[in-house]
Simulated assay, not measured.
Amino acid sequence: MKFEHISVLRDECISGLAIKSNGIYVDGTLGGAGHALEICKHLSKDGHFIGIDQDKNALAVSQERLKDVNPKVSIVNSNFEALSTILDNLEVQSIDGMLIDLGVSSHQLDEPLRGFSYMHDAPLDMRMNQEDTYTAYNVVNELSEDELFRIIKEYGEEKWAKRIASFIIQHRENIGSVHTTYELVDIIKKAIPHGARKDGPHPAKRTFQAIRIAVNRELEIIEPTLLHIVEKLKSGGRLCVITFHSLEDRIVKHVFKKLEDPCTCLKNFPICICGQTQQVKLITKKPILPSDEEVERNPRSRSAKLRIIEKL
Rank of each mutant, 00 (worst) to 15 (best):
D46H: 03
A122D: 00
N298F: 04
S7D: 10
P287L: 04
N298Q: 03
G51E: 05
D261P: 01
H194S: 13
V26M: 07
I229G: 09
K20E: 12
I39S: 06
L306K: 01
H228F: 09
C240P: 02
I6G: 09
V76T: 05
D96L: 08
S117H: 08
I229A: 14
G23D: 10
F244R: 01
E157C: 13
S177G: 01
N79K: 07
Y137E: 04
I271T: 11
Y137N: 03
L143F: 04
Y155C: 08
H228G: 08
L247R: 03
N89P: 06
T243W: 02
V26Y: 10
G47N: 06
S291I: 01
H245L: 14
Q108M: 14
E12G: 03
P299R: 00
I151N: 05
P299I: 01
K311Q: 04
K72L: 15
G16R: 02
G32D: 11
I164G: 00
P299G: 03
P290M: 02
A304W: 06
P290T: 05
E158W: 04
N70Y: 07
I309W: 14
L59V: 01
G195A: 13
C240A: 13
H35Y: 11
Y25M: 05
P201R: 04
N216M: 07
I39V: 15
E111F: 09
D292G: 11
H245W: 12
F149L: 13
N138H: 12
I151S: 07
K67T: 10
I271S: 10
E12A: 10
K253S: 09
K305P: 06
S144I: 00
H202F: 14
H107T: 12
E183G: 09
A196M: 07
T135V: 12
N174E: 11
R212W: 07
I24R: 05
T277N: 14
G97M: 00
H42L: 08
V73K: 08
R65F: 08
E294H: 05
E183W: 03
E91T: 15
C13E: 01
K258E: 14
K258M: 10
E220M: 12
I188W: 02
E111T: 14
E142R: 05
V8I: 12
M1E: 06
P193L: 00
L239Y: 12
K72N: 15
R302H: 05
E296Q: 08
N89C: 09
S21W: 03
S303R: 04
D261A: 13
V69M: 10
T29V: 03
Q63A: 13
G51D: 01
I100K: 02
N298A: 06
H35F: 05
I52A: 02
I39T: 12
E158F: 06
H202M: 12
I169V: 07
I288L: 06
P299A: 02
N70H: 08
D199N: 12
V140R: 00
L289K: 13
G51L: 09
E260L: 09
D261I: 08
K311W: 13
I151K: 07
R127V: 02
H254Q: 15
I288K: 08
K189F: 11
E4M: 11
I75E: 09
L227V: 11
R163P: 02
K257N: 15
S94K: 15
G51C: 03
K153W: 13
I221W: 10
G47D: 04
L17G: 10
E223C: 10
C265H: 03
N141K: 05
E173K: 13
D27M: 00
G34T: 09
H254S: 14
G176T: 01
T284R: 02
K2Y: 14
R150P: 04
